[in-house]
């Protein structure tokens, strides 16, 4: 998987499905997940297949996650912040969150 170069930025504490994950300043949510070795960030609403970030440039929508309670956010476009709560999105999104 991915490893960090020595010169990555200062640490940022986020949680992923309630577990503590250390990201770095400048990370997007998707980058933080990849760096933490998290295998998949969602399952599809069609067949429930696991998916993980694919393009990291905002076109594929495979890195959709729930961020701070809001579902279907593009993880590769959202910078992390201290205390951010990221959740795996399972299948179809629930209306209202």
């Amino acid at each position: 998987m991915f490893k960090r170069l020595a010169d990555s930025g200062p640490a940022i504490a986020i949680t992923v499905d309630g577990k503590k994950v250390t990201a770095r300043a400048g990370d997007t949510v998707a980058a933080a997940l990849l760096a933490a070795g998290i295998d998949h960030c969602r399952t599809t609403p069609v067949t429930g297949a696991p998916r993980a970030p694919y393009c990291l440039m905002g076109v594929c929508f495979d890195c959709l996650v729930t961020v701070d309670g809001v579902g279907s956010r593009q993880g590769c476009l959202i910078p992390v912040h201290d205390g951010m709560k990221v959740e795996t999105q399972l299948g179809r999104r629930e209306a209202g969150r």
Partner: peptide, 24 residues
Amino acid sequence: WTLPGVMTAGAAQTALKAHGLVVG
């Protein structure tokens, strides 16, 4: 190609440029 762990080369390049992540 939809399996986790399959990505584009561009994605790996973005990970390197923007986040200092290099593939192992």
